[in-house]
């Protein structure tokens, strides 16, 4: 079981050029020798052009279905008339819902890691992590309720919700790998929480623009909890990292 200290131990990492001077010397025979020459060799243009050509030709990830209830549909219709795009708001609500649900599962994995390394973080109780986890669930339910209020379907995976899965793939891999330490896990949670906090800020602004002041107020409460999450996770991560440094 790799503790945070063990994960920074000295050992036989073989990835660098200095692992074997003889092999490295042979390897360098294929590299450019004179690094003071201008960078005539680097040409990102061809690659950029191929990307641009695909971007111009690309279809979007998908769409947002219209609200299904009459009340919601009427509301959406009204906003469309005034130039506001309720579906953009629904898309971001879908994103937040996906993120908070995924966040709860990220904490489930982090709690397992924490329990396996319980002695590493003195003064921190697993209940604190469980509380954050439960708040992520509560936030997901809050967003679900808001989507329903707008007459939309909370089970839809909107384009931005879909992208949450792509964006957080690495975070989940980092936390669920048994070989990563508690410090690695907290570092990953911190990244997740920082993104989360910024997501709520945008959502509050959008809710206000949509004239949904009650919703905005509830989102503000959620954002405050998220700020606490950032504060706590950052504190644990820093404590553990500094402590690990001292131990080494």
């Amino acid at each position: 079981m790799p503790t945070s200290t063990a994960s920074t131990r000295l050992g036989k990492n073989r990835t660098g050029m200095q692992t074997s001077p003889a092999l490295a010397k042979a390897m360098l025979e294929n590299a450019e020798e004179d690094v003071t020459e201008p960078t005539a060799s680097f040409d990102g243009q061809a690659l950029a052009e191929m990307r641009a050509s695909y971007i111009r030709d690309a279809d979007p990830l998908g769409s947002i279905p219209p609200p299904t209830t009459a009340k919601g549909a009427a509301k959406s219709g009204a906003k469309m008339m005034t130039g506001k795009r309720p579906q953009a708001f629904l898309d971001k609500l879908g994103e937040r819902l996906a993120y908070e649900r995924g966040g709860a599962r990220l904490y489930d994995a982090a709690i397992a890691k924490f329990l396996a390394h319980a002695s590493e973080l003195r003064g921190v109780n697993v209940e604190e992590l469980r509380q954050i986890r439960d708040e992520e669930v509560a936030h997901a339910l809050l967003v679900q309720e808001c989507i329903e209020q707008l007459g939309a379907d909370p089970t839809v995976q909107t384009p931005s919700a879909d992208l949450v899965g792509v964006q957080t793939m690495g975070l989940l891999q980092a936390v669920t790998d048994p070989r990563t330490s508690l410090a690695h896990t907290l570092n990953t949670l911190l990244a997740a929480e920082l993104i989360d906090e910024a997501g709520w800020e945008i959502l509050i602004a959008m809710a206000e623009n949509m004239g949904q002041s009650d919703m905005a107020a509830r989102f503000r409460e959620a954002e405050e909890r998220e700020q606490e999450h950032v504060f706590k996770v950052r504190g644990w991560y820093e404590a553990l990292t500094v402590e690990t440094e001292r131990l080494v």
């Binding site: 050029m17 490295a24 390897m27 590299a31 450019e32 690094v35 005539a40 060799s41 680097f42 061809a46």
Partner: peptide, 8 residues
């Protein structure tokens, strides 16, 4: 790989 040369 246009213009690519491997470097450490």
């Amino acid at each position: 790989s246009k213009g690519y040369t491997w470097r450490p």
